[in-house]
């Protein structure tokens, strides 16, 4: 079943569409969850997280869009996995580099602006830089994994990631965000 049909049926709350969604995307969603967990969670926890992702999508089916279904699943899988790890007091990886902005932490508008700005910066980057950063920071893939999947050496991967991060830093500074 293609995504367009899936979304149409999910919006109508057709249970067969939910089953088809699980069938089509459970491997993808559980892979995202497993990457984020980085080996700290067992199979049963990963399965529970994966199931929770589909339940969340089911509840929010009115918000679904066929073009972004896969990304939407990944975002939810990532968020649920991080929440689960934090709840279990496992350390979620943090980067040594942090951006610093002077916005008010309480302001949703400021948060939205930062998010929009960040998406725009990422979209301006080269495809290779973007892929490296997304694999590392979004999917939580490790260097050997990224290297294997992009068919590059680990050293090229490390260098590429280092350069991509510097270019990201420059772009963020240009837009008024400090970088520590």
């Amino acid at each position: 079943m293609d995504d367009e049909k899936l979304v149409r049926l999910l919006r109508k709350k057709k249970e067969e569409a939910l089953e088809a969604l699980v069938e089509k995307y459970s491997a993808y969603v559980s892979t995202v969850a497993r990457n984020v967990a980085g080996g700290t969670l067992g199979n049963s926890d990963i399965e529970e997280i994966t199931a929770d992702v589909f339940i969340t999508v089911w509840k929010k089916s009115s918000e679904l869009c066929a073009d972004t279904l896969r990304s939407y699943l990944a975002v939810i899988a990532r968020n649920i996995s991080i929440d689960r790890l934090r709840k279990l007091h496992y350390t979620v990886p943090i980067d040594e580099l942090e951006i610093d902005d002077s916005s008010d932490v309480e302001s949703n508008t400021d948060q939205r602006l930062i998010a929009d700005e960040f998406n725009s910066v990422i979209n301006e980057m080269s495809q290779r830089d973007r892929e490296l950063l997304l694999r590392y920071y979004f999917y939580y893939q490790k260097i050997p994994q990224i290297a294997a999947e992009m068919s590059i050496s680990e050293s090229s991967c490390k260098t590429g990631l280092f350069r991509a991060r510097n270019r990201l830093k420059e772009k963020l500074i240009e837009r008024g965000y400090g970088y520590e």
Binding site: S71, I94, D95, E98, D100, I114, Y137, Y139, R165, L168
Partner: peptide
């Protein structure tokens, strides 16, 4: 406030590899 890159990437809504 400061955000690390993992947090920032949770705001990403574009196409994924």
């Amino acid at each position: 406030m400061s955000k690390n890159l993992y947090d920032l990437f949770s705001e990403y809504r574009g196409e994924l590899p």
